[in-house]
Design a protein around this nucleic acid. Structure first.
Length: 777
DNA sequence: ACGCGCATTGTTTTT
DNA sequence: CAATGCGCGT
């Protein structure tokens, strides 16, 4: 058998057509689990083996760095040798090319990539310089506005103001950009936008890369934004050997400018493109697929796909209502343990959620029950203070003109340089038009400067160290540099000092060791500092190599894209969480559709077994609120579900609900699942449960409003409430408290009370059941 | 310059 | 409920 036969073996006709397509534009619309990654990698191998394309002429764009690594590995295993193809995310590829071609850009080779924190600082500086109150204009909102401009390829002078905020943005954006340039820094959006600018403005560079990349392949094409779309087109010219793979239904990154309509745009821009549909799913059971379809079918503007699988039937899905997030976690733990007892593995299970904050309750329970897990993303390694500090040191060594990193570490650990001294230093550099490096050099050269003697001495001491570190960086070994920095600054002692507990100190030290380990690896590849720093800026915690140990995976729905697990739990199917609050505003129909796609992505990760869970109440942002069941659950036909929680049954039987629901066959009413008995140690929980049971005595209120009606949200409900914010009340169980808010919800008044007894905290109760009395002040 | 304690504030997803 | 920021006292 020839290599090519092996390459094409086992492909279905559509996959075969995609892999062996000729030159010119090709669009592959690939449903979940349809083998698109395999098609993409085989396509690359096919180009090289059969179409005699030189590997160096191929650019393959993936969505994550991790996916890039995996794709390279698979391609090399097909070819049996390392291949010189360019594989990476748009951001990583652009960063590399910008570094190589820096002479044609406004940046020097040692540019840095600003993360969100750096960006916020840059914005604050811009606001300060423009005399704009940063309290009035939230830096993050401004940043978001600037980011959308960049994603739409609008340069600073092209920002057009349509409203007052837009006007402020139009003033801040140019200033912000100037500050970035002053720091020799690019933000994430710049990596793409500056690449477009470079290609557009420098014909020799453009032609060089257009010749170089004769074949461009893009994965997850539905999540490209406008700049990325233009990059694809620019690189692809003039031959347009473009191979785009995507699925509109899995577009979940609109918040960063992704526009699934780029798929349609591709078809319009390349009317001659071959369009290939991959509709056979090799991943999931029919039940899982039907569930996914029921959810996604409600979206408009989509290319309908007839997904099918040969795995007919399968276990029905489970929808579980928990009392609160703790019981939700408990349910999952019970199911996972049962699975383990039946011979299953932890690594077969993934637990997904909409927001990172939801992982906490899950982790608590997992730790308590001794279930091993890995957390993808979250408050990551690179956000730890000690890691950020050391990274800032390395960035300053690489580029002393990264003023934001300089400011971060100039007095960490404390070396007597306070805000005042730093400001004088900054002002003097600005006044003389010197870089920080210039000013430090002037100091050690003994120049007479208008600074306090003490200030000069302290900066000089720092400057000498910095100089020594830079020498060290020249000679190569990054680990040696790291060791020199920690030793010269006494950073290890500093770590002990900033830690309040021995555990915290140990954890921070461990993080430093881990960072050192990363540098050790970089040394093995002889990576220069500047390159390594760029690599790290592009690396996120989601990219961590998944270890092979037997552990449950905890991750957001976003992070789950492209992955699959035999058993999947999707948690928090509640209004406000999934769909998220931010998608529930009036006129956010697009956002709502994206939430639906997010759930669709989650569901289609499951190979065999799917659980959807929600909680009756949940602790969120400091208060425990009664939750409403996610509207998405109503779209799942009852025959796909093993049993329905009482609340959903109650909903189903309510008249207004029945008219527009898709539950077709009434499921047998299960015995009420008794809420797990409270442990002896939790009197507070017992109280909650008592209130819960009391509420259950009442007929369930209709939880789902008639179709088309706006969901009432805090603050916007009409009608009068019995309680007003500011009133003092007394609850029979929880004692006295202060009313924080009260709202009408489906005819039921929900009153939020902060109880004086801290054990009870802030709770939201149904006014008609809470039996509270009004206290006079 | 530094450290402590109170207050405020924001609440999604990530390259 | 965090995390961050600010102002005060030393």
């Amino acid at each position: 058998m020839t290599g090519t036969e092996a390459l094409l073996r086992g492909l279905n006709p559509q996959q075969h057509a995609a892999v062996t397509a000729g030159t010119g534009p090709v669009l592959v619309l690939a449903g979940p689990g349809s083998g698109k990654t395999g098609v993409l990698t085989r396509r690359v191998a096919f180009l090289i083996r059969e179409m005699q394309v030189r590997p160096a002429h191929i650019m393959a764009v993936t969505f994550t760095n991790k996916a890039a690594g995996e794709m390279r590995q698979r391609i090399e295993s097909y070819l049996g040798a390392p291949a010189a193809i360019t594989v990476g995310t748009f951001h990583a590829i652009c960063a590399r090319l910008l570094r190589i071609e820096h002479a044609s850009t406004p940046y020097s080779q040692d540019f840095v990539i600003f993360d969100t924190d750096d960006q916020v600082k840059a914005i604050e500086q811009a606001l300060h310089e423009l005399n704009i109150d940063s309290r009035k204009f939230n830096p993050r909102s401004l940043l978001a506005a600037i980011s959308s401009h960049k994603n739409e390829m609008k340069l600073p002078h092209q920002a057009v103001a349509r409203d007052y905020l837009g006007e402020v943005v139009a003033r801040v954006y140019p200033r912000y950009q100037a500050i970035l340039l002053d720091n020799n820094a690019l933000d994430f959006d710049d990596l793409l936008l500056q690449m477009v600018v470079l290609l557009q403005q420098h014909a020799p560079v453009r032609e060089k890369y257009q010749q170089r990349f004769g074949f461009v392949l893009v994965d997850e094409f539905q999540d490209t934004n406008t700049v990325q779309y233009h990059l694809v087109r620019l690189f692809g010219r003039p031959q347009d050997n473009l191979f785009a793979v995507g699925d509109e239904d899995q577009s979940i990154y609109a918040f960063r400018g992704a526009d699934y309509r780029n798929v349609q745009r591709f078809r319009q821009d390349f009317p001659a493109a071959q369009v290939i549909l991959l509709e056979q799913n090799y991943r999931s059971t029919q039940v899982v697929l039907d569930t996914a379809r029921a959810v996604i079918d409600r979206n408009t503007n989509r290319t309908p796909k007839a997904l099918f699988t040969t795995q007919t039937g399968g276990d029905k899905i489970t929808i579980h209502e928990a009392y609160d997030e703790e019981y939700e976690a408990r349910f999952i733990v019970e199911q996972v343990e049962a699975l383990k007892r039946r011979g299953g593995r932890y690594q077969d299970v993934a637990v997904m959620y909409r927001t990172n904050a939801q992982s906490r309750a899950l982790e608590d329970k997992f730790i308590k029950e001794g279930i091993p897990y890995t957390l993808v993303g979250g408050v990551g390694f690179y956000k730890r203070r000690e890691v950020r500090d050391l990274m800032a040191y390395l960035r300053v060594v690489n580029n002393p003109n990264d003023k934001i990193s300089f400011a971060r570490i100039i007095n960490v650990p404390k070396r007597g340089i306070g805000d005042k001294s730093l400001q004088e230093f900054q002002a003097l550099a600005a006044e003389r038009g010197w870089t920080y490096a210039d000013l430090l050099a002037q100091m050690s050269a003994g120049a007479r400067l208008p600074l306090a003697a003490r200030t000069t001495r302290l900066f000089m001491e720092f400057g000498e160290k910095l100089h020594a570190w830079q020498q060290q960086a020249q000679t190569g070994h990054l680990v040696a540099l790291f060791d020199a920095i920690t030793a010269d600054t006494g950073y290890h002692l500093h770590v002990q000092q900033i830690s309040t507990t021995p555990e915290e100190a140990a954890e921070r030290s461990e993080n430093l060791r881990e960072l050192r380990g990363l540098l050790l690896r970089a040394d093995a590849e002889d990576k220069p500092l500047g390159e390594w720093l760029i690599d790290q800026s592009l690396m996120t915690d989601v990219e961590e190599v998944r270890d092979t140990a037997d552990k449950v995976t905890l991750l957001t729905l976003h992070a789950a894209k492209g992955l699959e697990y035999p058993v999947v739990f999707i948690t928090g199917l509640e209004e406000g969480l999934l769909p998220h609050m931010r998608a529930l505003d009036d006129g956010a129909a697009e956002d709502l559709q994206e939430e639906r796609r997010l759930l669709y992505v989650g569901i289609t990760r499951a190979r065999q077994r799917l659980y959807l869970t929600y909680a009756f109440r949940r602790m969120l942002w400091g208060s425990s609120d009664v939750r409403k069941v996610s509207r998405f659950l109503a779209d799942i036909p009852a025959h796909l579900v093993d049993s329905l929680p009482d609340t959903l049954l109650a909903e189903r039987s309510s008249a207004s609900y029945r008219q527009q629901t898709t539950w077709d066959t009434p499921a047998p009413r299960p015995a009420r699942p008794a809420p797990a008995a409270p442990g002896p140690e939790r009197s507070r929980l017992a109280n909650d449960l008592a209130a819960f049971r009391q509420q259950l005595q009442q007929p369930a209120p209709p939880l789902r409003p008639p179709a088309g009606k706006v969901i009432p949200f805090p603050g916007q409900s009409a009608g009068s409430t019995q309680y007003q914010p500011g009133q003092r009340v007394k609850h029979p169980l929880f004692g006295p408290g202060l009313v924080q808010a009260s709202k009408l919800d489906a005819g039921e008044e929900l009153v939020t009370v902060r109880f004086e007894d801290a054990r009870y905290g802030t709770k939201t109760l149904m006014a008609s059941l809470a039996n509270m009395s009004l206290l006079h002040p």
